[in-house]
């Protein structure tokens, strides 16, 4: 799936004394099967751009297109459907739910679908085995290491086999071994033709991308294609 952003601007707390201009007039074109990597210093607007493209927040100005459909002005319900059926997210801080076990977290996206627990567990088990988490299936996520938690988060993002994957600094909070494993997962996804958008500081990940964006002070510099 291709994603296009036109003049995206995001201002938090608009009109208040704490107003933050996180992104200004950002325009990008991400083609289908692109592996787009975004870099830039902390607070430059990478996460905001990911959230805007992933329909997690509405732009103050500008538009987002997915497959030429202008989706940024869709209602909350329609945006939810797009997230549910087409998008997978991986967060830097994992954002797992501590009350659930590892497999339950992985299976969460299927909870709002017509599935039984047995079906969900079967699916989760399969993907967790692929990610080397077979032994951790029934563990509470709090008892897992940071690397394991991130792999659970990756499994959760991939369980619905989404066409677009967003990842916000997926290797920033994990050890080198896990980072390598996660980079391997992205390579596989790239091979499978998924559209991937990742914000990162990880140099070994940057070289895998097909497109490199640099963001600075809320502004996108000209993208570099490899």
């Amino acid at each position: 799936m291709k994603i296009r952003a036109v003049n995206l601007t995001k201002t938090y707390f608009k009109g208040s004394p704490h107003e933050v201009s996180a992104l200004r007039n950002a325009s990008i074109d991400i083609a289908e099967r692109d592996f787009c990597l975004m870099t830039g210093p902390s607070g430059s607007g990478k996460t905001t751009l990911l959230c805007l493209l992933g329909l997690l927040t509405k732009p103050t100005q500008g538009k987002v297109y997915i497959d030429d459909e202008e989706v940024s002005s869709y209602s909350d319900a329609w945006q939810t459907k797009i997230r549910k059926n087409k998008i997978g997210f991986i967060f830097q801080q994992y954002n797992l739910l501590p009350q659930f076990t590892a497999w339950e977290n992985v299976a969460l996206p299927n909870l709002c679908r017509e599935t039984t627990a047995a079906e969900r567990k079967q699916q989760a088990l399969q993907i967790m085995t692929d990610l080397g988490l077979k032994e951790r299936v029934d563990f509470k996520v709090a008892s897992l290491s940071g690397g394991e938690q991130q792999r659970v988060a990756v499994a959760r993002a991939l369980i619905t086999d989404p066409e677009i994957i967003f990842a916000d600094e997926p290797t920033a909070a994990v050890d080198e071994e896990t980072a390598t494993a996660i980079i391997g997962i992205f390579k596989d996804l790239k091979q499978k033709g998924k559209t991937i958008i990742v914000s990162t500081h990880d140099k070994s990940l940057i070289k895998e991308g097909t497109m490199h964006l640099t963001i600075n002070h809320g502004e996108i510099q000209a993208p570099i294609r490899s």
Binding site: A77, T80, K81, K84, P109
Partner: peptide, 16 residues
């Protein structure tokens, strides 16, 4: 609220 945010990210609707 964070939990709700995560669920919505994963495709849960407001109605869900």
């Amino acid at each position: 609220r964070k939990e709700v945010g995560i669920l919505k990210t994963l495709g849960f609707s407001t109605t869900d």
